[in-house]
Structures are given as structure tokens and as C-alpha cells.
Design a protein around this nucleic acid. Sequence first.
RNA 1: GGAGAGAUGACCGAGUGGCCGAAGGUGGUUGCCUGCUAAGCAAUUGAGCGGGUUAAGGCCUGCUCCGAGGGUUCGAAUCCCUCUCUCUCCGCCA
Length: 357
Amino acid sequence: MLDIKLIRSNPEKVKEALKKRKEKINLEGILKLDQERRELLLKAGALKEKRNTVSEEIGKLKKEKKDAQEKILAMKEVSTKIKELDTLIKKVEEEINKTLLEIPNIPHESVPLGEDEKDNTEIKKWGEPREFDFTPLPHWDIGEALDILDFEKGAKVASARFTVLKGMGAKLERALINFMLDLHTNEHGYKEIFPPFLVNAETMTGTGQLPKFESDLFKCENGLYLVPTAEVPLTNLHRQEILNDDDLPLYYTAYTACFRKEAGSYGKDVRGLIRQHQFNKVELVKICRPEDSYNELEALTKNAEEVLKRLEIPYRVIVLCTGDMGFSAAKTYCRPRKNIERYHPAVTVKIFKPEEQ
RNA sequence: GGAGAGAUGACCGAGUGGCCGAAGGUGGUUGCCUGCUAAGCAAUUGAGCGGGUUAAGGCCUGCUCCGAGGGUUCGAAUCCCUCUCUCUCCGCCA
């Protein structure tokens, strides 16, 4: 969420950012509300000052056993007015806050301008895709053939977009989680965290999932939400805390299962493990000084790339354009769900060999 | 689920209607001292939101904040109601 002060003092910059992101949000409205709020604050403040001083006088008069009735009556009226103003201020503030939560982050200047996926820029490619002298099968066929993936059972015990891992498939999943956590904790200096998989609404708001993207989340009856990524509990570990400069930067890594409703994706990626309601992820989060954040992002991306290098999976890193970035991002190397893009022989050949399309 | 206790500043901890943004201590910062030495002395040290002023650092000023929200009152950390969280004991489940 952007600071209202930034918008107030630098409206052109914010307008520019919104334009880049293809967001149609009217800043004039919020600026007017902000102005209104400050005017009301001034009025209420003056009345409160009066109430405070006169109330003190009343206290003194009473102590001296003098009559204070007149002043009490006058203050009664003032109090009523204050109450009215306070109610109004609260209403205006709620309105401002609501609008602020709808405004996305300002893109970093290095982010390419663009509309959508097709305008993302590739900045790095690693590894040679393997050559096959046959047509490779997609993972869902191989997985079922090996009896390590079972999509039908997933649908049976839960629903579509759930998968049961069996035997070596389950072991492989567990091994990958351990491999990544070990790598990031032993060699990259991250602290391992095991956070709750369910979080409250404040936490979801802290990372920008709420209020705008509630329909993407699974919500429990008691009001808690299933985490869509470990980023949510990790970044919220320090929500509304003032961190000591000496303690920065903080590097956290965590495994969680991730839960996403995938609303509006009917018919997309219906096969295989690409778009699941539940999947496993090892997340990297850094909390650092603002001036260091872009360097830290570069280092973090390298840490993530290391996983793919060691697994010998060819990949490419793309920087998302302004139109394709996530709501609260200022710069991203990840598309949702794809992160650093890997080479899947049967699925992503085109990305790696565009000339053969 | 039942019974009880509690929530105050970075931390500990006083405070039951006006003189409390809040005693005292710890910690932090600054200065002094330098043969009682992992010490002593002194000063200083919360935040948010506004307003004024300044080239700026800053300075002046108002309001709000004692878990959250509401209420009583001229006036609430202090009284009343609701909620949340923490702790202890009992039960239940595993």
C-alpha cells in the first residue's frame, strides 16, 4: 500500500505509474478526500483544544467548590460537535484507506513498459535443452505410467486440480523440499522458518492479497485463510514492527504447501501439475533497506537459479513488463506459478527454441 | 468447553476520575569523572496525524495514542459493555 503522503506530494509520479500499469484509478478523488480529512482534522482539533482547557478549568472550580454549571453545559455542546466531526473523519479515512488498498505498487524504472506476457523481456538463459530422437511425453503421462502421480485419486479424495503423489513421487517431492531448504540455509545464509499454513485477514492484507484478490483464496469457517505462498506469513512476521537497522538484512526461507483457488482459470492448464489448488513451494524472502532492495533481489534470484543449475534443468529469467507484474510488486522476475521459467521438454519447447515454432 | 489471572513506553514496572504522555528502574544517547572500574555522576531519550515557519537541518504549535472497539462524563490509563490475545487450573480430543 502506498503512503498517502507520497500521493499528496507527488501525484504526477503516481499517475505516471498507474498509467504504466494500465490501471484506471482516479487520483483526484483520493486527493480531494485527503484535503477534506485535513480540514476536518483542523476543526476537530480546535474544538478538542477548547474542551481540554475548559475541562481543566472546571476541575479547578470544582475543587474550590465554585459553580461550574455554565461551563459544563457549554462543553456538553462542544463534546457533541466533536463526536460528530470524529465520526465524519473516520468515514473519510475509511474511504481513503479503501482506495489506497486498490492502488498497485510503483514499478521500478528498470521495468520494461508493456501490456502483458508478450512484452516481458528475457534477460538470461541457462543450460542446453536435451535433444530427443523421439517425442517426449508430458509429465502427466510419464507420472501415471510410473505410478508416481495419480490425478484421478486426487480428484477423488479432494477435487480436480489436486494430485496424489505416490511411492517415489512422494519421496521425490520430499527430497526436493529438503534439498532446497538445505541449499538456502547452508550455503546462501537464509534462516529456516516453518510458518502457519493458515493466516488471518490482517496478514493477507499485509501482502496485498486482500482486499482485492479474496476470490483467489481459500477461506476457512473461522475466518482464517490458507496461504497462497509462504511469502505471506514470512513477510508478515515483521508486520508493524520497527526493525533495528543493525539487524538488516533478514533472509528467510520456508517450505509451505500453497493453496490457490485459481478462480477464472477454468479450462487453462487442466492437465498435470501446472496449476494445482495445492502445491509445494520453498520460498525466499528478504527484508532489507530500501536502497539495497534491488541488489538483494538480484542476489535472491541467483540463489533460486542455483537450485535449477544443480538439478541441471535449463531455465530462463525474464523480467516482467509493467502490465504483467503482480499488484504489490515493483519489479519481478517471476510469473505467477512459473517463477524462473524452467524447460519442460513436452510443454515449454517453444520458449527455448522460438525459431522452431 | 468450564474456572480464574492478566494486557501500560525498547524492556521491567507503578498508577482506580482532573495536577498522567504517564512515577521508578533497565537499556540507549551525550557530557563529565578516572585508582572503589564489566564502575560512578549528570543530562537526555516514545509514536502517529495535522498546522505554522525555514533554502535546508531544524524550530514552534495542536490533537490523538496506556490490547481493540463502543459507552458513561464537562473531563477516562483509571468506571461500564463487547471483543481479541496471553498465562494458570480442570475437562474434552489426539
